[in-house]
Amino acid sequence: MAKRFIIAIGREFGSGGKHVGRALAKELGVNLYDRNIVEKVASELEVDSEQLMAYAKKKKRPFFHKTVKGHTTSFEDHVANMQFDYIKKLGESDESFVIVGRCAEEILKDYDGVISIFVKGDREYRIARVMKQFGIDRPSAIEKMDRHDRTRKYYHDRYCKGKWGEVDTYDLCVDATYFGTEGTADFIKEYIKRRLGE
């Protein structure tokens, strides 16, 4: 595509949003950023990426942290902010890319060419995908799915004004149940083309 674009994808656990992002990045010939941002941050800081990864989406414990003049003891906040800073740097570059999660739709909202998308899925569709992907039974899949969605919502809403998974937060909300991963990626690609006037 001629114009610079940034596709920021939020997703429900098990909806296949990450795979949609991967398919889109491949088809559009651009980089995909997701968990690899933490590795890139760790490499820049010359620190252990495993530790940063462990705190990348950890819930902040109340009463155990304090903030003084904008300085916080919460490592969870630091890891989040490191990722946000990295995402902003990407936003300031000329690069077109696809980014999954990490509050990207909010962090990048002031940059040109940002298209924010939320991928959801029917509950049964997601349960089936989680059971297959992780080789686990239905109760475990439900428990895992709900836990991850809670964490994602907590993380997103903690750092963003817009609410996770709500229509007002995104340009496009799409249900992956009907088209599957590849079909949803194709659908979004068409949407992007029309948005960019191509």
Partner: peptide
């Protein structure tokens, strides 16, 4: 603690 945290 914060300065250390910001640097990983």
């Amino acid at each position: 603690v914060s300065v250390a945290g910001k640097n990983g």
